[in-house]
Design a protein around this nucleic acid. Structure first.
Lengths: 222, 222
DNA sequence: AGCCATAGCTAATTACATTAGCTTAAGCTC
DNA sequence: GAGCTTAAGCTAATGTAATTAGCTATGGCT
């Protein structure tokens, strides 16, 4: 039996297993989207997979483990989207803006996962250190872009700080929270909240004005 | 039967009933605080009340009705806190700032209820129109303060707009979201996020500069 | 003295997460 | 190809929760 394009050794089994795992995660994501993040139930996933509930335990040790895998998948996807967006924009402020907007767009397009990641709506679920790791890298990305923006003279030197990172993420999270809570069906760019994001980015610039000339600048806001 | 302000008929009974209702709501709030907003369970409430679960149904038709009552109670309390804070400050911008800070302080001191009210962590729960009503009044309060701030020349005329209200609430919600998600044990004024709120209020001023002199003002951010 | 609404109860139904233990068949080893 | 291993399914059972149905006692009113 010469396997033409099938892999040589015994990882046939491992691959099928991995496929099933991905399928479970996809279904779980669908269910969360339809029923809410904490409306996820093993029983419903099993039903859609065409299997009895206990069979799911062959793939995940618990419901929380499914949440954790979704959390990790989301972090990786989100990180990727953001990286991509930042790479496709100019350095510094441009990259930061592009990255944040991409982040917001992704969050609204993947609400269930985004809520799981950023709002913790399932109190009994705490992400594992592993699943949380990519988020550290995301902060680093943002931080780097802000440092670049400082170098390029687009922002004042205080923008290269933890405080400034907090401020930036606060602005985005504010917009997303409002949009998700009050306009649950709209995408990024629609409604009353997400269109204000560019304006908020301009506020950020106002908050960290470059020292440039010796102007005492009435808009130094710190 | 001259009803003055309380229904005179079968009074004692009605009062005891009302007391039990309040007690149930208090317990429910405790449970939510300990177990998370959607960790609220009728069974646990019954246990703490020293009663069998079905007995709760004599007071509330469903778990969702309890959520709804908590939502309403929260709205009223929050509205009151905010009104009080605004009354105790100068008009306009001062009142607005005081009101928002009081709102934030209240939200962190009453996390469970605040989350129920502003983040909708229980997807199967949607507040009734009744329970939602006070929030309309709250927006009106904020709007009035902003209009005053415009009159007093503290903010530019565009600050008296729906858009500006959105912006203000977005800033506060951003701070609260971040604080609740990342620093679940801290009060208002502690940690990395809530102390940035005064700065954000200054950003608001930068976003709606008064036209005052003919300055073209590099910090007009709209 | 009697009525009756209130507030409690038990029992039953349904749905879910999880555990235990059984069965089958795929794939690997010899 | 015979036999072993194990992955992946199953059924049965347990414990908890929300909710419904229907029973009962009693406090307060007529």
């Amino acid at each position: 039996m010469a396997q033409t394009d099938t892999p040589p050794r015994s990882d046939r089994r491992a691959r099928r297993r991995q496929e099933t795992i991905e399928e479970i995660l996809d279904i779980a994501e669908d269910v969360m989207t339809e029923e809410g993040v904490n409306g996820l139930s093993l029983a419903e996933v099993a039903r859609r997979l065409g299997v009895q509930p206990p069979s799911i335990y062959k793939y995940f040790p618990s419901l929380m483990a499914i949440y954790d895998s979704l959390f990790l998948r989301g972090q990786l996807e989100h990180l990727d989207v953001m990286r991509q967006a930042m790479a496709g924009a100019e350095c510094g402020l441009g990259a930061l803006t592009a990255g944040l907007e991409a982040s917001g767009r992704w969050a609204l397009a993947n609400r269930a996962i985004a809520q799981l990641m950023f709002w913790r709506p399932v109190p009994s679920f705490a992400p594992s250190a592993e699943a949380f790791a990519p988020s550290v890298e995301m902060v680093a990305l943002q931080r780097a872009a802000m440092a670049e923006a400082v170098c390029a003279g687009q922002l004042g030197p205080e923008a290269d700080s933890d405080e400034a990172i907090c401020l930036v993420s606060t602005l985005l999270v504010g917009v997303l929270s409002q949009s998700m809570a009050n306009e649950p069906d709209l995408e990024w760019g629609q409604g009353r909240f997400t269109p204000t994001f560019p304006k908020l980015m301009k506020l950020l610039v106002a908050a960290y004005p470059r020292p440039a000339s010796g102007s005492k600048s009435g808009s130094d806001v710190r």
